[in-house]
């Protein structure tokens, strides 16, 4: 038994090194980086194991290993305490460490506002944005509502009796709920759960009336016909045309705007280095992520999770961040989520 274990260990720890050397010659013939990692790279996930950010990072890790894209190993570390503040502060405090990457989502804007966290994304070195995640309005399929309009009208009539579930408090799901309240005049009772998975289960069990989960958080229940997607909070419909349920694909879901509820929200999925790192270092990881996003495994993953493919780096990425930050700032203050100073 121990022999087998050892064999397995050897395979994992030694093979990548020797093969990576070979692979470098084979796949990257003329590529010379201004900088390359010299130590194992830690990827900090400011979220718990098993969530959407975690899955994405582990998929990328798998792709990097499989295609020998990096000579050094990649370690995934979950620091999901305090809605991600734990991981964000850890990366902020690792000034000048080029062997630490952070997976970012909208918490980088909302947390500083909601709890006075002494953090701003400008404290970090932006590497690249690789996708954005959609949000949808879901109801239990036993309910009669077929469109967002019908559902929100009913919610308005119920005057506070409808329950909306979501992940955490004063975060993206909560922001969308408040925006819906404003535009549609509905008064949802927002119930915060620990994860999107929990919110999905609670919707199937009819403990809540709706949720605004990401596609990946509700896809299983959708396919099984337990929940119904009413609309997507985005400018355009999603692009994936393969049938997911018996008769619907992601592209068949109307936007909320089409249904007369103009609420739009998307969440970035991006990578950052700690502050004090160089442009060369950021460029290395941006290039690495570019290669990752070109693999068939990544295309497959993106399609399954119905992520919107966006690749932004350098000045474009910074411009996006500034705009997105201002957007969140406005939403958070309008919703009354800003902490008392």
């Amino acid at each position: 038994m121990m022999k087998l274990t050892r064999k397995l260990f050897n395979r994992t720890s030694l093979l990548p090194f020797s093969l990576a050397a070979l692979a470098c010659v084979a796949t990257l013939p003329n590529q010379a980086y201004a900088w390359e990692p010299t130590k194992p790279v830690e990827v900090i996930i400011p979220a718990g194991a098993g969530g959407a950010s975690d899955q994405m990072a582990r998929t990328i890790q798998g792709i990097v290993v499989k295609h020998q894209l990096m000579k050094q190993p990649m370690l995934i570390i979950n620091k999901g305490g305090a809605s991600g503040a734990e991981g964000i502060m850890d990366v902020k405090d690792s000034k000048g460490n080029p062997h630490k990457l952070m997976v970012a989502f909208s918490a980088i804007y909302t947390l500083p506002i909601a709890v006075n966290l002494p953090f701003n994304w400008r404290d970090l070195n932006p590497v690249a944005m690789i996708a954005s995640d959609e949000f949808l309005l879901w109801v239990n399929s036993d309910t009669p509502y077929k469109t967002a309009k019908e559902y929100l009208d009913a919610a308005k009539k119920a005057n506070g009796a409808f329950k909306m579930g979501g992940t955490g408090s004063k975060r993206e799901d909560h922001i969308i709920t408040v925006a819906l309240d404003k535009i549609a005049g509905a008064k949802f009772t927002y119930i915060p759960y620990k994860s999107g998975g929990e919110a999905a289960t609670q919707l199937v069990g009819k403990h809540i009336d709706s949720n605004v989960n990401n596609p990946s958080e509700n896809i299983a229940q959708w396919r099984a016909g337990q929940v119904r997607a009413l609309c997507v909070f985005s400018e355009q419909r999603m692009v994936y045309k393969d049938k997911i349920t018996k008769d619907q694909s992601w592209a068949d879901i109307p936007t909320c705007k089409e249904s007369g509820v103009d609420v739009q929200y998307q969440m970035l999925r991006a990578f950052f280095l700690p502050g004090g790192t160089t442009a060369d270092q950021a460029a290395y990881y941006a290039e690495l992520l570019k290669k990752v996003t070109a693999t068939p495994e990544w295309k497959d993953y993106v399609a399954k999770q119905a992520l919107k493919e966006v690749y932004l780096t350098g000045a474009d990425f910074v411009k996006f961040l500034e705009k997105d930050e201002a957007f969140h700032n406005k939403l958070m203050h309008e919703a009354g989520f800003a902490a008392k100073k």
Binding site: A82, S83, V115, G168, S169, R171, P192, K194
Partner: peptide, 10 residues
């Protein structure tokens, strides 16, 4: 101690 998940407060 820490963040209260229900209200999002510290």
């Amino acid at each position: 101690i820490g963040m209260d998940t229900v209200s999002g407060e510290l």
